[in-house]
Design a protein around this nucleic acid. Structure first.
Length: 926
RNA sequence: GGGCGGAUAGCUCAGCGGGAGAGCAUCGGCUUUACACGCCGGGAGCCAAGGGUUCAAACCCCUUUCUGCCCACCA
């Protein structure tokens, strides 16, 4: 009686084994091996993502690689960390506060940070739960590097060093300002959404001397308050005379000059004259610098117009825009408008908020020299980016890199280690809080209020989490790390910056390989989003979720009623019966199978269900194995000597599969690994090998002890090996099954720490594969006849087989009982086929089969079938002949290709002969 | 405007120089003692269009048409 339940129920085994691995300490085995180090850097989980599917993908691939490497004997380590700073984190708490009717300014900085920690703890547990359910083994203990401890120290060290090297500086420049975050943003945090229809609106500036007007066009009339010049091209005949003259600002007392600047003004565009707003436009800013213009900031931090705007102060930009237009119109200065398509920058965290270019004093990193090194490292192959398609993108970004604005006007993050002197107003930058100003010695210092961009601290991850700036053992062992695995969306945000910082501070690249995986979308390719209702939570896939549950979850997202309604409808259509419980193993297998190197993953629930069934298949296979082995089986220590054709065949196929798996793992083509294992276990092991040994097993040990033992050993060996091969992808079920099969005393106590299987060259047997292939052809052909003529499986057919190759005969004669069993037909091998009138002849590659049908033959259907085959065959033959009769083919093609073509032609001709004879007989019957 | 992909069976995709593949879906037949979360069998594709390179092209090159995504400061 098998100790295994009659079917695979993932929920009943997952928790048990995760606890077991955790208790045994397998997840933190980095000190336990003297093999080479293998270290994976894990990205911070996406704090805002309600779907987490991308995170699940990252966790799965990383855990899979780690498990594989660990089984291969490597010393492994994950380098996890959490989001230590950032707008997203701050936003969550700010929303909470808003619900409570307060805000961060009311409760103060200290309390606010406390609240964030509270929330992060709760959130961290959610992440922990998710990775646990996926079987992923992240050592989150490293979270101890908090804001106050190790990481913070590393961040300050890096800041000070870069400052001293002149690579970090404070400057007043044009930055991106999000009026919702009320903070500066880096260029990367500004998204350009769909271009929208706007208006290019023209108006006239009157010359002060009354000699006329100059017409300019703008998409943003409200910026008129920041205008400090009108610019024309120096060669523009229309305006040459006006250069140097002043125009009157229509709303302010200000008079502004008409200047000439060939870089800004384009004679071909619009009127050829352009208003210059140096404090609110990148081009105008540059023009202002060149021409020493005044920089006038016209916006408050919340995006309303400030006191520079006269009566307009306090208005939002949108309202101000309309009023500016109205008033200019009223004064007769409007000069018409035309449609204009443009894409305003929007805040990554606040997609509804248009990012305002604004002049502001911020901290910057001069990334130019850092970027050059990061670029060179990839060029020189020190770091390999996989897939290589991304290399160009990586280069392009680094080549065009701009100074990186790193200060954020937030409260949650690593505080900038700069202190300002209240007396001399100069800055002192230091790792520890200074007691006196280094310029004037004053003790009246106050620290910079701002924090650093979350990606600044993240850029240090590969060494800061290993204990830098101390030269720790961990750092010495694991830097540079082996692999970084992450989604391609943070190639610039994180990967490139880790490269820059790693090379600069450690003198070596932070990782040898960068694996960039695809983004997870829904099965129709739509981006998963709460509002579209196509969000799939990995936990819902693992545990299953009915429609009520899914609805409930949607409601939790706080969508506006209309969106909620739409989302519900979409959800109902996508998951009409809810989501079935598939378990972590199926989830992992699916994600692994989807990693073929495309840019998008269209996740299909159906496919996950399919892999859930694969789990059950292995479960059943193991139950069969246990029944076969009986109570007192002693496991083999190595591959049993194959005595029969099926044994030779399955061991050969196993070795082939292991070769494909090893290659796939080494080249990180995980989808090829999943396919190879799936097909081997299901289509070869279960469908054929198991079926061939059933008679031996059923006959019992007494009937033929040697054959019985050999079948047991082979099946045990193959299944045990397959389980270990599959373990990194489906950890739970393989552990459960492995624990339930007999094991030798010298085997480890867990499959997780057992050695990974290696292909045995000596077991690869192409003759056996050909012979067994012929067996499969014969059996399939006879089964097809049964199916075509809807003959009950209980009716025993009778067939004669003539093999085209003499060398197959001996091997297949031995297997005749197998063939008879598998096809439920009496099969005899003959040298010559005597076609009897009631028989149906089938031509296959390895020979010809005559099945006795007692006159049931559907002559027309068979003729059509043979005709179709003949047509195809003739086409093939024509192609082979064409090739072989072409002298340059024989000259230029490799010898083995020519030989292969010759064999194919011979086989095709042989088959053609058979088919023609068949057709002739059919015609006689008709 | 620049860059990178994708277009292969009804759907989701794999293959990326030597006879078109998988899963799901579909159709037909099976209560065969591991498994109906199953078994057996079948149908289904001018591999987007056109040109080129090659002995040989779904695969390499060029052009076109759709279609994603990323980057970009243009009034």
């Amino acid at each position: 009686m098998s100790p295994l339940a009659s079917a695979f129920e993932p929920a009943q085994i997952e928790d048990k084994w995760y606890k077991f691995w955790e208790e045994k300490g397998y997840f933190h085995a980095e000190e336990k091996s003297d093999k080479p180090p293998y270290c994976i850097v894990i990205p911070p989980p996406n704090v805002t993502g309600a779907l987490h599917m991308g995170h699940a993908l990252t966790l799965t691939i990383q855990d899979l690689l780690i498990r594989y490497k660990r089984m291969c004997g490597y010393n492994t380590l994950w380098l996890p960390g959490t989001d230590h700073a950032g707008i997203a984190t701050q936003m969550v708490v700010e929303r909470q506060l808003a619900k409570e009717g307060t805000n961060r300014h009311e409760i103060g900085r200290e309390k606010f940070v406390e609240r964030v920690w509270e929330w992060k703890k709760k959130y961290g547990n959610r992440i922990k739960e998710q990775q646990k359910r996926l079987g992923a083994s992240v050592d989150w203990e490293r979270e101890r590097f908090t804001m106050d401890e190790g990481l913070s120290r590393a961040v300050r060290e890096v800041f000070v060093k870069l400052y001293e090297e002149g690579l970090i500086f404070r400057d007043t420049r044009l930055i991106n300002w999000c009026t919702s975050c009320q903070s500066a943003l880096s260029d990367l945090e500004v998204d350009r959404e769909e271009p929208e229809k706007g208006e290019l609106w023209s108006f006239a500036y009157q010359l002060v001397d009354g000699s006329g007007e100059i017409v300019v066009a703008t998409t943003r009339p409200e910026t008129i308050f920041g205008d400090t010049a009108v610019c024309v091209h120096p060669d523009d005949e229309r305006y040459k005379a006006m250069i140097g003259k002043l125009v009157q600002h229509p709303f302010l007392k200000r008079q502004i000059p008409i200047i000439a600047d060939p870089e800004l003004a384009d004679m071909e565009l619009g009127t050829g004259a352009v208003k210059v707003t140096p404090a609110h436009d990148p081009n105008d800013f540059a023009c202002g610098k060149r021409n020493n213009l005044e920089f006038i900031n016209i916006l408050n931090p919340d995006g309303t117009l400030n006191e520079e705007c006269g009566d307009f102060a306090g208005l939002t930009t949108v309202k101000a825009r309309q009023r500016v237009k109205d008033e200019l119109e009223a004064r007769g200065l409007a000069r018409g408008s035309k449609e204009h398509i443009y894409a305003p920058g929007r805040c990554q965290r606040h997609p509804k908020t248009v990012v305002e270019p604004m002049i502001s004093t911020q901290w910057f990193v001069n990334t130019e020299s850092l970027a050059r090194e990061a670029l060179k490292a990839v060029e020189e192959g020190k770091t390999e980016i996989i897939p290589a398609e991304w290399v160009k993108t990586y280069y392009h970004w680094l080549e065009n890199i701009q100074p990186w604005c790193i200060s954020r006007q937030l409260w949650w993050g690593h505080r900038i280690p700069a202190w300002y002197c209240d007396d001399c107003h100069k800055e002192t930058v230091a790792v520890e809080a200074p007691t006196a100003c280094k310029h004037c010695g004053s003790h009246n210092l106050h620290q910079d209020e701002d924090v650093l961009d979350t990606w600044f601290s993240s850029a240090l991850w590969p060494f800061s989490t290993l204990g830098w700036p101390e030269n720790t053992q961990l750092l010495k062992t694991f830097y540079p790390t082996s692999v970084l695995e992450t989604g391609y969306d943070i190639l610039f945000f994180w990967v490139a910056r880790m490269m820059m910082m790693g090379i600069h501070f450690m003198g070596d690249v932070p990782f040898k390989q960068v694996l960039l995986h695809a983004m997870v979308r829904d099965e129709r390719g739509k981006k998963m989003s709460k509002a579209t209702g196509n969000v799939i939570d990995p936990l819902d896939v693992i545990d299953g979720s009915d429609l009520d549950n899914l609805y409930h979850k949607l409601e939790g997202y706080n969508l506006p009623p209309a969106e909620l309604k739409r989302a519900k409808a979409a959800q109902e259509q996508l998951f009409p019966e809810g989501i079935p419980a598939c378990g972590a193993d199926a989830m992992r297998f699916t994600l692994a199978a989807y990693t073929a190197q495309t840019k998008d993953i269209h996740l299909s629930i159906k496919r996950i269900e399919g892999y859930r069934k694969f789990g059950n298949k292995i479960w059943q296979l193991t139950r069969f194995l246990l029944n076969t082995l009986g109570e007192n089986y002693t496991p083999v220590t190595s591959a049993p000597e194959p005595k029969t054709l099926p044994a030779k065949w399955i061991l050969s196929r196993l070795s082939n599969m292991l070769k494909v798996v090893a290659a796939g793992m080494d080249e990180v083509k995980i989808s090829e690994v999943t396919m190879a294992i799936y097909q081997f276990i299901w289509n070869e092991l279960c469908d054929w090998y198991v079926e061939t040994i059933k008679p031996v097993i059923q006959a019992g040990e007494a009937a033929d002890p040697e054959a019985f033992k050999n079948a047991q050993d082979t099946l045990y060996y193959v299944v045990e090996t397959a389980l270990r091969t599959l373990h990194p992808i489906m950890p739970f079920i393989t552990e459960e099954l492995w624990q339930n099969i007999p094991r030798r005393a010298d085997m480890p106590e867990s499959i997780m720490i057992s050695p990974y299987p290696v292909a045995a060259e000596h077991l690869i047997d192409s003759a056996a594969e050909e012979q067994f292939g012929a067996l499969m052809q014969i059996v399939t052909a006879i089964r097809a006849v049964r199916s075509d003529y809807t003959i009950s499986p209980k009716v025993r057919l009778s067939a004669k087989v003539r093999l085209s190759k003499a060398n197959l005969a001996a091997a297949l004669n031995e297997q005749v009982s197998s063939i008879m069993r598998l096809s439920n037909a009496d099969v005899t091998f003959v040298d010559e086929l005597h076609h009897e009138s009631g028989n149906l002849a089938i031509v296959v590659n390895c020979g010809e089969i005559s099945v006795s049908l007692a006159g049931l033959i559907n002559v027309e259907a068979e003729k059509a079938k043979v005709d179709k085959e003949l047509t195809k065959l003739e086409k093939d033959i024509a192609r082979f002949n064409g090739k072989l009769s072409n002298p340059s083919f024989k000259d230029r093609a490799p010898a083995e290709v020519v030989a292969a073509e010759e064999t194919k032609l011979a086989e095709a001709l042989e088959m053609k002969k058979g088919l023609e004879a068949s057709l002739k007989r059919l015609n006689e019957l008709a």
